[in-house]
Simulated assay, not measured.
Amino acid sequence: MSFAAMMLIGLCLDAALGWPAAVYARIGHPVTWLGKLVSSCERRWNHGPRDRRLRMGAVTLSVCVIAVILPARLVQAALPDGAVGLILTGVLAWPLIAVRSMHDHVRHVALPLAAGDLTAARQAVAMIVGRDPGQLDDAGVARAATESLAENTSDGIVAPIFWGCVAGLPGIAAYKAINTLDSMIGHRSDRYEAFGKFAARMDDVVNWAPARLTALLFALTSGRAAGRALRVVLADARHHRSPNAGWPEAAMAGALNVRLSGPRLYGDVIAEEPFVNAAAPDPSPSDVARGLALYRRSMVLLAAGLAVIALA
């Protein structure tokens, strides 16, 4: 079975349909199912001395990954060979790719921001970032939305497709388990620093290659700005707070010729982060729309690459 063809089918289904609200209302979503398992493990095991929290965090990581790999392997082995099996695996991969929802979430920020409705834009950006949107001006909202678009293109689309191509349904399922664990418990806080340490480190490992591939996709689809995008990546990606997120963010910043990252407010705490592409201006509302256009071109290139690999 061609795993690349499987992922191409899943990508196309999600781009066309997203995850329909009627389906979500009836059965939820695989990530929310996994989230319940993570929450249950965290409630049971995230207490006691730091050493115990570290151990039980590693156990939680193992339990959640095994819980998705085993059924994925069984299902993949049980499906028939040929076109029918290929289509069915593509359908099963579909909900684990976030092409449509990523675009729609950022578009819901871009539209009111362009119309001058800062309140609605802040409400929309609060759905995709962790910082306090009430303190953001137009440029801050535009920067937050553009950063989220860049980073989540890697985490939510390129990485699951990459691991699906490597290992089929077990690969994409294991990746989503690790990424969900990181988003829920991989925080540097008193509650999660020890318990989520292994999940956060594993998330860094599995996103290493996809983050750099995403940066390359953005550069290749940025037209005459490709050289600048690559220069910003080489100059600034390694200075980012994340070992991976800086790559797609730097490529996006260079492609649009805006500055991203920089200081941000989480609750009452200001995180003093360096800017990416610091000499460029802050993004404007129109730059968010330009970022979405770059995202769409990158997804077309990604689909074309999957098609070439599948045919080969």
Rank of each mutant, 00 (worst) to 15 (best):
A237R: 06
A237P: 11
A237K: 11
R238G: 01
R238S: 15
R238I: 13
H239N: 15
H239F: 10
H239K: 15
S242F: 12
S242I: 13
S242L: 12
S242C: 13
P243L: 08
P243T: 10
N244A: 11
N244D: 12
A245L: 08
A245G: 14
A245P: 03
P248D: 10
P248V: 08
P248A: 10
P248M: 02
P248I: 09
P248N: 12
E249S: 07
E249V: 10
A250W: 02
A251K: 05
M252R: 02
M252C: 11
M252I: 02
M252F: 04
A253E: 05
A253G: 05
A253R: 01
A253D: 07
A253W: 02
A253Q: 06
A253N: 06
G254K: 05
G254P: 03
G254T: 05
A255E: 03
A255K: 00
A255C: 00
L256K: 03
L256S: 01
L256E: 04
L256R: 03
L256C: 02
N257S: 14
N257L: 02
N257P: 00
V258M: 01
V258R: 00
V258A: 03
V258C: 02
V258P: 00
R259N: 08
L260R: 10
L260P: 01
S261G: 08
S261M: 14
S261Q: 14
S261I: 07
G262E: 06
G262C: 07
G262M: 09
G262V: 09
P263R: 08
P263H: 07
P263C: 11
P263K: 07
P263N: 04
P263W: 07
R264H: 12
R264M: 14
L265E: 08
L265R: 15
Y266S: 04
Y266T: 04
Y266R: 11
G267K: 06
G267Q: 09
D268N: 14
D268V: 11
D268E: 15
V269A: 11
V269Q: 14
V269T: 15
V269C: 04
I270Y: 02
I270A: 09
I270W: 14
I270D: 00
